[in-house]
Amino acid sequence: MSVHQTINLDTLQEIVERHGYNKNKLIAILQDIQAVYHYLPAEALKTLSKLLKIPLIDIISVATFYRAFSLTPKGRHVATVCMGTACHVRGAPKILEEFERQLNLRRGETTEDGEWSLETVACLGCCAIGPVVVVDGDYHAHTSIRKVPTILGKYRK
């Protein structure tokens, strides 16, 4: 993977301190780490295990259980296709397939050059404007198969 970041111990220490070294805040701590690196680097989790004095396997269990966490680095751009029921009946699966085709990726994967990640989400709660696709935090309402290249084009510059 070309996207590689070295783990800054101070950042980690600061996050853990902010939560008062509280084991019960594990999820919030992981959320903060994920916010910094956009994934959970293995080194960070190993250090976290020592800082919080919890077995590494317990951290891994939590990190792999919740959908918000990723153990692999994300791409520079993240396209998230909403797979909620309302989006589904309005054709979300076809839109996902089109993204997979255009990016030559499967859902949950990242391109080799680290440019794009393709994700799905259970529901974004804006069903009225479905099918919805979120790219780098921007919501794209009423997407269709034909709009996919246009959406991707905006970020490809």
Partner: peptide
């Protein structure tokens, strides 16, 4: 952190306690 099952009461509690839901 993204888990449908955490809508269940006891799973939600586990999640607040920092554990697997």
């Amino acid at each position: 952190a993204g888990a449908f099952v955490c809508g269940e009461e006891t799973a939600l509690i586990a999640s607040i306690e920092g554990r697997v839901g």
